[in-house]
Each structure stands twice: as structure tokens, then as C-alpha cells.
Design a protein around this nucleic acid. Structure first.
Lengths: 408, 408
DNA sequence: GAGACTTATTCCAAGCCTCGGAAAAAATCG
DNA sequence: CGATTTTTTCCGAGGCTTGGAATAAGTCTC
């Protein structure tokens, strides 16, 4: 719905613009900011001074001391101590926490090995609280107040970003994680699907070179995050984009989710293993070790037929899925990540062949693929970026000083 | 990308708000408008008077003459003569044109039977020009200037909304239709996929009761339009949402598009006919008459096995497609339209069963279905709405009088 | 070392826009 | 015909951006 605009909205929008500039240009000056944003020098200066006053920006020595003549420019950058954010990554064997300041500097990181498989909802929440709590202990008063927490988990989360509707790594369903963590921290907490946030990792860079792209995780499961027209896609009611459970073949192989024919049932670690080794379906109760998958990939590289076929089948499932996605929303560059992405040499040909077979005119069969490593790092960075972006938004619209008032 | 805001942007935004109000409330007053939009009485009044001055709004007698006391309210409504729009619907056997004024009143409508199948690009463009030209003859000077043209066609159009990339009803590919029509009319021309615009039909009403929904056309082909978070979805490079060519079964039945296994190859008229009658694949060179499909449906209703199975197969393909769509972007209410929608009694059970089998947890199997009739009317209304919405946008941002200047 | 020269910021008056409240307009009621 | 009621318009205040003038803070030149 449209909403009315007034002078306050103008200021908010321009503050947003300025803060966003510092996400792209960590150290800048009033003058440069004016040029980049298109704001007049006066407006840019006024907003900058305002933000310094309320503690969102800091002034510092300029970096660029090449130009000799003239009054030296005053360096400006986001003030780390303006606030801090926490991200919580809940995955199969562990819970990881990472803290960052407003500038994006990582303040602390820790992880705890846990077995979530048998926990009740309450026990799980208590465990999450405890791990997050441990992380917060490392925050000292010199750090800014914790303002945002982002928790990610494999599975489906709700559209309000508060509950875990369903996760393959948890027995109970519909767990409200946001409320107890908000009670613990006093900060805003958002609960999201882990793959869904991944595109955020590229929010402020231009690594992909397109405002539209997909991030495809292939590992113990298969998941996707979409960025469309520069916005990370989320469904209205849930985290959506359940690419791993996009049906590949009606009535096909059995998937962890209980349905038949999901992409994951062909391309997840357990599915590739199952296809190559003829293991029983109950295999997906536990993870296939990364090392075992590596060995399997090596076997395929050496030409072992069953292994080769298993990877080809996986590539075909992924390719048909991408072809279907492209049919619905045009071809996108795809970032591959996760242990499965390590085997891209075994998958790429069949992926592209399947896209060709399933998309109109074979469109998208030549879309750019990017392979990235270190999923854990990418996920944590993505969550941190999302948390910081939410803070930016809050700081933009806050009528008065959002952090601390003038007198200090 | 974010853009800076200033006083002008504020005015533009609030004008947009006011114009939009009149789309929902065709006859209103300054006071009511102020209440609904949230603008102060002064601002609302100022904008309204402004719009009257430049000829976008007209004043008239109030409708509601119940309330007796007090100064009578001045009725306000969009001024039809502010501009006019044309829509061009290019389909298998005919080209239809419809003209409407800025208020949405239809000024004229005509159709011409044509055979497009053998035409060259130039001949096709000449024909389209000629039909549109005939339509424009009916415009008299008392009507506002033609400002927007929307042409719809079955097939894929480009993201810039100028070209027909590929259409099953035309031999040549990549036809630039916008440029010649702009030369003819002097108005902005947009070329779009016919099904893609359908959701526009519901832009200003609340018939669906949700900002997210899908319109699914089932007939000689299968097509879809999506509305997500109150915006009609379009791909970055093309019209996208080629639901009919979403792959249903890898390597499955042959489709008109040349691929195998598309939904259309199971659920299009020709596919149902083919399945029931065992006709040759080349059948899809020409349309199955609506009457023949009706007879087939009646046969199925009377229990003729081949017919029943053909419709069930169609429903299954559609249901799997919807399940896949819902897996990617959450369940949506679906509006069914087209000759295939007449057979919903034969399709619904298998559609819902297939959704259940293909979406996680069967989510969306109970999503609301709405059946509408008269595709042609809906398409023309949808295109008209889209054209008017573009005009609204242009009138909102125009700094000064967009139609005619004060003196008149 | 002082004045000229440069470049970055800040200050200021002008122009828009919205807002709230007062004033004006246009009917009906008694 | 005056009082009352309800809708609009008018007016001053306050916030924001803008362009240009003024100020600040260095380097360069002689």
C-alpha cells in the first residue's frame, strides 16, 4: 500500500542513502558522499553532521593524503560502537554464534557441538539461549548495545520470521525461537532459513554483477536463496524457495521430507550415496561424512560407473530444477556452495544438459555459474549483513538520535 | 538503487496517493480523500485543486445528497478526457482493439479475424498497425490524447516490453512491435505476454482478498500471471512465468514448444484431446474447437474412460506445476480462466491431489480456487488497467500540468 | 614567515511542502 | 433572516533541500 510522504520521510530517505553509501565506501568524506548520492553539498553535510551527532558516524583522519593543497577532507565512517548484532547459526551438529559491531567488524565467534536430534522444543530453546548467552558474555561496555539478532536454521521458517515451522534437524515443529531470544537479549530477533539469507552476503558488493541471482547450496540437503531485482526473496507465509523439495519426478525417490521425487532425493549427499552404493533409504537419518563424499567423488573421477551415474543423476535433478526455476522467473546467474559444489566438475555437464532440456528454447543453459567455498563463513557473513541492513533501516527512520543523545 | 528525495518527490508521492484513491473510490470528495489517504485536509485540498487545474480531476455535483445540513461537498472524479489508452490483443484467429478513456470508460472496441500463421514480420506489423489504426479512427477530438498502448500476445516477450521474442502463433521471431506502433500513435507502447497481464484485472478491486495470487489460463495453451506482494511479477529479461512450459515429466510428452514434458503437453486442449483420442502429435498445428472440447468434457462426465483419464492426467500436470510453484514461492490463491476452466469439475480433484503429492507437507492443497469466465474480456480489462496505471504514474511525477495548461 | 591559492565545510536566504488552526463559504433549520 | 453545520480555503509555522557566499584549514611561493 502506498503511504504518504512529508518532510520527515524525505530526511529518512536521504539518511538511508547516506548510510548506504558508507556500506559501499567504508571511509568517505562529505564531499564525495554528496557527489555519489546526488545530494547537494549542503544537504549531504547537514545529514552527515547529524549522524555524527547522534553517534552513527565517526569523523577521523582522511585516508587519502595525496592531494596536498587545500583544506584537508574530514574522513567519515560508520561508528562501530553505534550498536552490535549477533547471528546464530543452527545446523546439524553444532550451534555457532558470531557477533559484529555496526561497522561489520567481527567481535567474537564461538561454536558448540550439540546433538539436537532428540531435544524437546523447550530443551532446544534453552540450549539456543545458553549458546547465545555465552556469546554475549564476550561483549564489553565499550561495544554498542545489541540491537539485532538473526538466527538461521535449515528448514521452513514462518513469514513473520519468528518460528521454525519445520526443520529436518529437529523433532518438534512450530518452535517460537524469536520470543525467548528477544526476552534474553532485548534486541529484535529474526528467525530465517539458512539458505534463504545467503544472497545477503552479496548485498553490498558487486561480485555477481547482477541484481538477480540465485545461491544454491548442495550438501547434506539442497537449498536456495534468491535475489530478485535487488531484493532477497521471501514468501508471504514462510521462508519459501524450498528448491531442495521442488518435485523433480512425480512418484520418484523417497526424500527426507516424506514426499517422493524431490530434488534433494537425487542430489543431497545421502541421495548420491544411496544411488552409488545402493544403501537403504533410512540412510538419511544421519549425515554422510564429507570425507566419504569426497572419496565417492574421487571414485567418479576415476570412472567408477556407479559413482559417475550417481553424480550425473544428481546433476540432472539440479538442472531440471534450475530449468523449471528459469521457466518461471528467467535465467539467473547461480552461485554454488556447499560440499556438493566441490564436485561441480562432475555435475556441471549434466546440470547444463538438463537445463537445456527443461527450459523453453533451452534458455539459461549457458547462465554463469560461480563456485564458492566455506559455507559456514558465507552464512555467518550473510546473516550479519542482514542484521546490519535492518539496523541501517532503523537508524534511517529514527526521528531523533537512535543511539545516544548529543550530550556525551 | 536508492534515490534521493526532495520536496518534489514528496508532492509526487502524495499525488500518486490521491490518484490511486480515485481508482478505488471513483467519486469522492476532498474531505473523504484526506481521511482515507491520511493527508491533512489542507494538503489533500491543495493537491486536489492542483489536479483539477491541470485537468486530471473534474469537479461535479456530489452524489450523496442525504446529509442535509452544512456546505455540500464537491464531488471529484478522474477526468476521462485527460487522456485515452488503447489495448491490442493478438491471438490465434483475431486481433482485438479496445479504447478507453482515463476514467476507464470503454470508448470503442473492434476485432478483426486474421490468419497470422504464415505472415512475415513486416506483414504482421503492418496488419497490427492497420487494426490499431482502424480503432483510433473512432477517437474524436473530445476524447483525450492517446497516451498509452498495451499490446498482448501469447508467447514470450522481452523485458523491455517492446518485442515478441517468440510466439506459437507467429512464424518470425524477435519482432519489434513497439517501435512501429509508437511511430503510428505517438503514444508509449508496451508489448506483453497475455497471461502475464491478467493479474492487473484485479489491481484496484479486492475480489481475491490477497496481495498474492496467480491467474492460471487453461485453454489451447496454458499460461500464468503472478501477483506477488501487490506487484505483477515480470522476469528481468522476458515476460517469464511460462507456467505452461514448466517441465512436468523429464522426457515426457511432446509440446508445441519443441521440448518434452511441459505442462501444456498434458493440459493444453490439444494434449487432452490427443490423450483421449490418440490423435497424432501434429495435432497441435491447429486449435481444437471449443465445442469439441466441450463434447469431450461431457463424455468424461458421463464416465467415458479415455476422456476421464485424459482430464485426470491434465489435472495432475497442473497440480504438480502448482505444487512446484508453491514450493518455490508459497501457496497462492489461484484464479482459473479459459476454456479449460470450464472443466474444473473434472480437474479439481486431481489438481489438489497432485499439489498434495508435490508440495512440502502437502501445503497449498487447500488453497482457494476461483473460476472466472470470458477470458477475452478479462484480458482486455487487464491490459486497460495496466495502461491506466502507467498513466497514473506519469501524471503523478509530472512536475507541471501533464494534460493541458491552466488557461482553457 | 607572510600572503596567495586551494579545497572542504558550513552558513544563510529562498522556495516547496505539509500541518494545524482560523476564516470563509454554502447549505439547512428554526 | 439569523443560527448552525459541514466543507473548503487561507495563512503562518516549521522542516528539508538548494545554490551561492562565507569560513576554515592546509600548501605553495616569494
Amino acid at each position: 500500500m502506498l503511504s504518504k510522504a512529508d518532510a520527515e520521510a524525505v530526511r529518512a530517505q536521504n539518511r538511508r542513502l547516506v548510510i548506504d553509501h558508507f556500506r559501499h565506501q567504508p571511509v568517505s568524506t562529505r564531499r564525495r558522499m554528496s557527489a555519489v548520492t546526488g545530494l547537494s553539498l549542503s544537504a549531504a553535510s547537514s545529514i552527515a553532521s547529524d549522524l555524527v551527532r547522534v553517534g552513527i558516524l565517526s569523523e577521523s583522519e582522511p585516508v587519502d593524503r595525496q592531494r596536498s593543497r587545500g583544506r584537508p577532507e574530514v574522513g567519515l565512517h560508520l561508528r562501530g560502537a553505534a550498536a552490535s548484532v549477533a547471528v546464530l547459526k543452527i545446523s546439524v551438529g553444532e550451534i555457532a554464534v558470531s557477533l559484529a559491531d555496526y561497522q561489520g567488524q567481527v567481535l567474537a565467534a564461538l561454536r558448540r557441538d550439540v546433538d539436537l536430534s532428540a531435544l524437546s522444543a523447550d530443551a532446544f530453546v534453552a540450549l539456543a539461549r545458553s549458546v547465545l548467552s555465552d556469546g554475549l558474555e564476550t561483549l564489553s561496555p565499550q561495544h554498542g548495545p545489541l540491537r539485532q539478532v538473526v538466527a538461521t536454521v535449515q528448514g521452513v521458517t514462518d513469514g513473520a520470521e519468528r518460528r521454525i515451522i519445520w526443520s529436518p534437524i529437529l523433532k518438534p515443529r512450530g518452535i517460537d525461537l524469536a520470543t525467548p531470544l528477544e526476552a534474553l537479549t532485548g534486541a529484535r530477533v529474526r528467525v530465517l532459513n539458512d539458505c534463504g539469507v545467503m544472497p545477503e552476503r552479496f548485498r553490498w558488493g558487486n561480485e555477481i554483477g547482477s541484481p538477480d541471482f540465485a545461491v544454491l547450496f548442495i550438501g547434506f540437503g539442497v537449498g536456495m536463496g534468491l535475489r530478485l531485482s535487488g531484493r532477497t526473496f521471501r514468501g508471504a507465509q514462510s521462508s519459501a524457495v524450498e528448491f531442495g523439495h521442488l518435485n523433480h519426478i512425480p512418484g520418484g525417490d523417497l526424500c527426507r521430507c516424506g514426499n517422493r521425487g524431490c530434488i534433494e532425493a537425487y542430489a543431497g549427499d545421502y541421495a548420491i550415496w544411496r544411488a552409488a552404493k545402493g544403501a537403504s533409504p533410512s540412510l538419511f537419518e544421519k549425515r554422510v561424512p564429507d570425507a566419504a563424499m569426497k572419496d565417492l567423488a574421487d571414485a567418479a573421477r576415476e570412472g567408477e560407473t556407479a559413482a559417475v551415474l550417481a553424480f550425473e543423476r544428481a546433476g540432472e535433478a539440479i538442472g531440471y530444477g534450475l530449468g523449471r526455476l528459469f521457466t518461471l522467473m528467467d535465467p539467473l546467474p547461480v552461485v554454488f556452495i556447499g560440499s556438493g559444489a566441490e564436485a561441480m566438475d562432475l555435475l556441471e555437464v549434466s546440470i547444463r544438459r538438463a537445463i537445456k532440456a527443461s527450459a523453453i528454447d533451452g534458455i539459461g543453459a549457458d547462465t554463469p555459474f560461480v563456485v564458492m567455498s566455506d559455507v559456514d563463513k558465507v552464512t555467518l557473513e550473510a546473516s550479519t549483513t542482514l542484521a546490519l541492513a535492518a539496523l541501517d533501516e532503523a537508524f534511517s527512520t529514527a526521528a531523533s538520535g537512535p543511539v545516544e543523545e548529543a550530550a556525551e
